[in-house]
Design a protein around this nucleic acid. Structure first.
Lengths: 138, 138
DNA sequence: CTGTGTGCAAAACGTTTGCATGCCT
DNA sequence: AGGCATGCAAACGTTTTGCACACAG
């Protein structure tokens, strides 16, 4: 995700509006490596801005996703998670507590697209998910 | 997944029962590479066994998952998919039609667990998901 | 002033659960 | 006979939607 400052300009250039609710969400996401769910974001915004609605959180996250500013992670079976780090990286998820951590190793030189995939798909990228149990949960 | 025949024995040895509904579900899953959702399975069972309930489908898929006979795929944001092939392999998903295909390349020798993951997690495995658009949807 | 964003309530969706009944073993 | 499985309806948790109002530009 860009900085909040740049993001502000990006929104305006798209004819979108910069509201205090959105600013708060942007600030919460900026440099956030905790892979929050919509509810996580909601709770944190609510502390400072008690009247926010879930609707606004969902709509804003959708907007950010559509702008390519955050990546929607489909890793946890229970809920979606949001990652403001849109650079190539991967994840480990603990099967017990569902906490997600980043894996910054670059596997791209090792993970070659198989022929059949190349022939039948226009691949935009790949994601490696490591499954396991974290030390806290062991 | 084992063959329907073996699966029958496995269930019995666990004090579980082999019902016609379950048999039908097993047969639908056997050698199935289409990564069906619960609804896909439901529709197919319903054709032959019109009184089945969704509950039975869900419960049976849960049972098979708990027995390690099928793998639950968290890849499609809309629904879970089930894969009777529990050997190590990966997937491509089309962002448009959501169809999932197998990728049988073995990347295990190339995807080394990063130190930090090894230290903090007991990793059971990893899954590579390729994202893209299939030729049908282009 | 225009139109995008907000917030509420309600709906939608896939999935799970409680419970009475059915049937495998 | 006993207990696990089935099927219905209702509940669930997350996410989406319709709509009136608010406010950024």
């Amino acid at each position: 995700m860009e900085t909040v400052e740049k993001l502000t300009k990006t929104l305006r250039s798209h004819g979108m509006k910069v509201t205090p609710q959105r600013l708060m969400i942007f600030r919460i996401l900026e440099n956030n490596t905790s892979h929050p769910s919509a509810e996580d974001v909601y709770k944190r915004v609510k502390k400072i801005y008690p009247t926010v609605s879930f609707t606004t959180i969902y709509k804003t996250l959708e907007t950010l996703r559509d702008l390519g500013e955050v990546r929607e992670l489909i890793i946890d079976e229970d809920r979606k998670h949001y990652d403001p780090n849109i650079t190539n990286h991967h994840h480990v998820i603990c099967s017990t507590c569902k906490k997600i951590h980043d894996v910054f190793e670059d596997f791209s030189s090792h993970v070659k697209l198989p022929d059949f995939v190349q022939e039948n798909y226009t691949v935009s990228g790949f994601q490696i998910t490591f499954y396991g149990t974290c030390t806290m949960c062991t």
